[in-house]
């Protein structure tokens, strides 16, 4: 077994634990001070636990969004308390760890049993202080993955900060009715929108250009061919159908020539 595969298995286990721990903390945030019934809490925890086999991040996000949609009061001000920021961070972290675990599991075709066995072997080799090259290599690979994970988590913090700053720059309306009332004079809300549109469009153009430039020569050839086919398809189709009809007719004629007619075979020989 290669060190990379072993490290992948160990990382999957770490991600699974991080998912469960984050889910537990999110649950604490989620249900603190609410009157949600126990079954709802259990369903939430079950969804977190389901991450062990299936990626349920989408449903978790939907559940959190629904909860916020119904439970969060509409207000003019922005984020007020750090606990709200922590709540968003916990949700994002849960999504990140869960998706990472699911991706590793799918890419490595890992089962829970194989992951547990990898951890057991790794720990056993550490216990007896075996400084084998394999365990050292696994440890090295694992450190690399953990390093990557830390970078991504830091990135998540940056993303949260950027989103926070972006939202603070926009005047959020109190609710739908207030927003509708403010519409005639709602210049402040509408003011940043063009800038956002321009920035988003520019980013998309750059990204699409980057994606297009990555195409290989054969892909470019195929794209040109598909464009040509798109334009000339009806003509080609018409020519081809004519040819196919003609070929069928020729085959039918050839068969008629080679096989004697039925009435001749019935005729008695002289």
């Amino acid at each position: 077994m290669s060190p990379e595969t072993n490290a992948c298995r160990l990382m999957s286990v770490i991600c699974l634990w991080l998912t469960l721990i984050t889910g537990f903390f999110l649950g604490l945030f989620f249900f603190a001070g609410t009157e949600l019934s126990l079954p709802v809490q259990l369903v939430f925890l079950a969804m977190v636990l389901l991450s062990a086999t299936r990626w349920t991040g989408l449903f978790l996000l939907a559940a959190v969004q629904l909860h916020l949609f119904f439970a969060e009061p509409g207000r003019r001000s922005s984020i007020q308390s750090p606990s709200e920021l922590l709540f968003v961070l916990a949700t994002l972290a849960l999504l990140m760890f869960g998706s990472r675990f699911a991706t590793l599991q799918a890419a490595g075709r890992l089962t829970l049993f194989s992951m547990v066995r990898a951890v057991w072997r790794f720990l056993a080799s550490r216990d007896v202080r075996e400084a084998s090259p394999l365990s050292t290599a696994v440890w090295k690979s694992l450190l690399g993955i953990l390093n990557n994970l830390i970078i991504r988590t830091s990135l998540l913090l940056l993303i949260l900060f950027a989103s926070f700053m972006l939202l603070n720059s926009i005047e959020i309306s109190g609710n739908l009715r207030d927003w509708a009332e403010q519409l005639p004079g709602g210049e402040r809300q509408a003011k940043p929108s063009p800038w956002f549109m321009v920035v988003i469009a520019a980013v998309f153009v750059i990204l699409f250009e980057l994606a297009w430039r990555q195409k290989t020569t054969s892909q470019a050839r195929m794209y040109l061919r598909s464009l040509l086919l798109k334009d000339l398809y009806p003509e080609f189709r018409m020519i081809l159908s004519r040819r196919m009809v003609l070929r069928r007719k020729q085959l039918r004629d050839a068969r008629r020539i080679t096989t004697p007619p039925a009435h001749n075979t019935q005729k008695p020989l002289p």
Binding site: G74, E84, V88, S163, L167, S173
Partner: peptide
């Protein structure tokens, strides 16, 4: 953004 729910919008 429409309903003025900053946590939902932030998330």
């Amino acid at each position: 953004l429409l309903r003025g729910q900053p946590v939902l919008a932030l998330l």
